[in-house]
């Protein structure tokens, strides 16, 4: 661990869910991510660890920031990166996920990054390919690289996560970011809270090792970090919440609600934001409280560390 850039301490085939990770693996990845945060290391690494390797980005759902973040991370490590937006490709012609997997596997990629609208799709793919698979978001299941980059953002800013009180607010029910963050933050010793209307909280969420709140005032009390989640606007039509203005009134983060948290509380958002629905612009754009831009920046470094770690740990692919 003394020199994580050279270490092979990672014992991991795929990154499909936070539950694939143990604390040493997480610390290893965060340490490596920390190294790549240094822009001189990031843009000119001593060894192009993925030189001659192929990274395939397989996006069944539209995404800008995650896809480009992985693409940039792969290129900076020297990989040949192919990004496939499947929404506009062969699946539209009726190919199943496993057909696609077999086709891709025949191209012998070294790393596969997948985003899919169905929970569990990356796990299914991982059974059928012979390279490490990284889940870049599956349905309402997990988004482990987002949780890792959030943790790295916090560690970089605050030094450590142990003992932090973190509130994750909004549409928990449909959020893969929340599911990954709850697990990762718990492993890292944070006190995690979920805040949202009953309709947007999963049944029995209180069994996730978190405290559940339905109002921001009590939920944000004493919090060091507030993670806001995106409210998909189609939730109105589903009667999860009645309207944008009612949602903002009760759950949108503005100055008044921010004041319920600790005085120096930090605000995060996985993006893309709905300004005026879950977060007010003056908070999103306030560099003293908002880590939102910092999260995007950290995303590239964290994903370089994940690609690096997985490629290094599985030099001959996976069986």
């Amino acid at each position: 661990m003394s020199n994580p850039l050279a270490s092979k301490a990672l014992n991991l085939q795929h990154l499909l869910a936070i539950s694939d990770l143990n604390r040493p693996n997480i610390e290893f990845l965060l340490d490596l991510g920390e190294k790549y945060l240094d822009l001189s290391v990031q843009k000119g690494p001593a060894i192009k660890i993925l030189a001659g390797k192929t990274l395939i980005n397989l996006f069944f759902e539209n995404s800008t920031r995650t896809e480009k973040s992985f693409e940039l991370a792969g290129r900076r490590l020297g990989a040949d990166v192919i990004s496939m937006a499947i929404a506009r490709s062969s699946v539209a012609k009726g190919e199943t996920l496993l057909d696609t997997a077999a086709t891709l596997n025949a191209m012998n990629p070294d790393l596969l990054v997948i985003r899919h609208g169905a929970s569990g799709a990356p796990a299914l793919l991982a059974q059928k390919v012979s390279c490490p698979v990284i889940n870049a978001g599956d349905g309402t299941h997990e988004h482990p690289t987002q949780a890792l980059l959030d943790a790295l953002t916090l560690r970089n800013r605050l030094g450590q996560l142990d003992g932090l009180r973190v509130a994750i607010c909004g549409d928990i029910l449909h959020s893969r970011v929340a599911r990954s963050n709850v697990q990762l933050l718990n492993i890292l010793g944070c006190e995690v809270r979920l805040v949202g209307p009953t309709t947007l909280l999963p049944a029995d969420a209180d069994r996730w090792g978190v405290e559940v709140f339905h109002d921001m005032q009590s939920g944000l009390k004493g919090c060091d970090v507030i993670m806001m989640l995106r409210l998909q606007l189609e939730r109105m039509a589903g009667s999860f919440v009645p309207s944008k203005r009612e949602y903002f009134h009760f759950y949108g983060l503005d100055r008044t609600k921010l004041d319920y948290a600790k005085p120096d509380a930090l605000v995060m958002h996985p993006g893309p934001m709905n300004r005026g629905v879950e977060i007010s612009s003056d908070i999103a754009d306030d560099p003293d409280v908002s880590l939102i831009t910092r999260q995007v920046e950290t995303g590239v470094a964290m994903r370089m560390a994940i690609l690096h770690g997985l490629a290094d740990a599985n030099p001959g692919g996976v069986s």
Binding site: S243, R245, E246
Partner: peptide, 8 residues
């Protein structure tokens, strides 16, 4: 069909 603004 659609919930009103119960909270407000």
């Amino acid at each position: 069909e659609e919930m009103t603004e119960l909270g407000l």
